[in-house]
Simulated assay, not measured.
Amino acid sequence: MVIITGTSRGIGKAVAENYLAKGEHVIGIGRNHTITHANYTAVICDLSQAAEVEQLTLPDLGSEALIFIHNAGVLGEVNYFEKLSPDEPQKVMQVNFFAGATLLQRLLQLTPKDQSFKAIFISSGAGKNPIASWASYCASKAAVDLFCQVIQLEEQQLGRPDFHCLSVAPGVVDTEMQAGIRSVSEDVFSEVARFQEYKHSNQLYSPELVSQKLYKLVHHTVLNQVVYSLRDIEL
C-alpha cells in the first residue's frame, strides 16, 4: 500500500500513477483529486489546516508493506523575510513539514514493529543552500532533512528492523511551482533569471522522470543513508 500526499498534480500525481501502473493500491491525501482508478482511494484533507490533519481517519492499512510519501508542498510568498506577513512561515511549515510529521506519527502508532515501512519526505536543495526570498521554504525543507534523520535513529532504537525514513530532493522539476517562480519580479526575487534559464535551456526534470527515479531509489537501491538527491539516481 502506498499513501501519498498532494496527488492532484505534479510530482505527487506522477508518483501515484506510476505505482498504480504497477498494480499498487494508492491512497491519496489532499484537497483535490484528479486521478480516477480502481486502486486509487481519495482522502479529502486540507493539509494546511492542522486540525483537519490531526482528525484525519485513514483506511485500514492491512499488514502488507507500507510506503508513505509526503509530497505536498508550497513555496509560500516569494519576498524578503522582513516584508512577509507574520504568519507566512507557519503556513509553509504546516504543509511542508508539520502535516507530514503528524501523519507519520499516526502511521508509526498504527503499524506493527515488524511490518515493512518506508517513509519518504520530498525535500529540496533549498533545504541545504540559502536562497534569498525563500526563507520559509528553505527552513521547512531543512527541517525535513534533520527530522527524517532523527526518526530513522529513533525507530532503530525502538526495534523497527524493516523501516526507512528518507528525505529526498527531486531536483528542479517542471511543475506549477516552478512556473510561479519564473513569474516573480526581480525586485522581490534576485535569482529569478536563473530559474527562467532552467526552463529555457530544458534543464527541468519532468514529474514522470522524478517518479521513475524515486521508484528506483525506494525499491532498487541499498538504503544506507537518509538524505538523498534524485540527481544521483541513474535510470
Rank of each mutant, 00 (worst) to 15 (best):
S201Y: 14
A99T: 09
S140W: 08
T221Y: 01
A142D: 12
E208Y: 03
Y228S: 10
A16F: 03
D46Q: 01
S140N: 08
T7W: 00
H219C: 11
S116A: 02
Q94P: 05
Q196N: 14
K141V: 07
I181H: 15
N71D: 14
E77F: 08
L103R: 12
E186G: 15
E234N: 12
D187W: 02
V26N: 07
V26C: 09
S190H: 08
S201F: 12
A101V: 05
G125S: 08
V53H: 05
P112R: 02
H70G: 01
N96K: 07
N79Q: 08
H70Q: 09
S124G: 10
V2Y: 00
V144N: 10
N79L: 12
E88W: 15
R9N: 10
H70C: 06
L214M: 14
E155Q: 09
S85I: 04
L204D: 13
V192Y: 00
Q149M: 11
A38H: 13
V188P: 10
G73V: 04
P170M: 13
S123I: 01
N39R: 13
P170D: 14
H219Q: 14
V144G: 11
A126H: 04
G23S: 14
P207S: 09
G30V: 04
F189Y: 01
N18C: 07
P207G: 06
H220E: 14
A101L: 02
G171A: 08
I44G: 05
F97K: 07
G125T: 06
E154N: 11
V26H: 11
D174W: 03
N129F: 09
L20F: 15
E82Y: 06
I44Y: 13
N202D: 15
D187N: 13
S206M: 15
T5Y: 13
S185Y: 08
L20T: 15
D232S: 14
Y205I: 11
H200Y: 12
E88K: 13
G62A: 10
V192F: 05
Q90K: 14
M1P: 06
R194N: 11
G28L: 03
E186D: 01
Q157N: 10
V26D: 08
R231K: 15
W134Q: 02
G28C: 02
R231A: 05
A99F: 12
C165H: 07
A50F: 01
A132T: 08
V173E: 07
C148D: 03
D174E: 15
S116M: 03
S190W: 04
S229H: 11
Q178F: 05
Q94H: 13
E176G: 15
A50T: 07
S63K: 15
T221N: 00
S211N: 03
V53D: 05
L217P: 01
G125W: 09
C148K: 02
G10P: 11
L158R: 03
H25E: 09
S229C: 11
L56P: 02
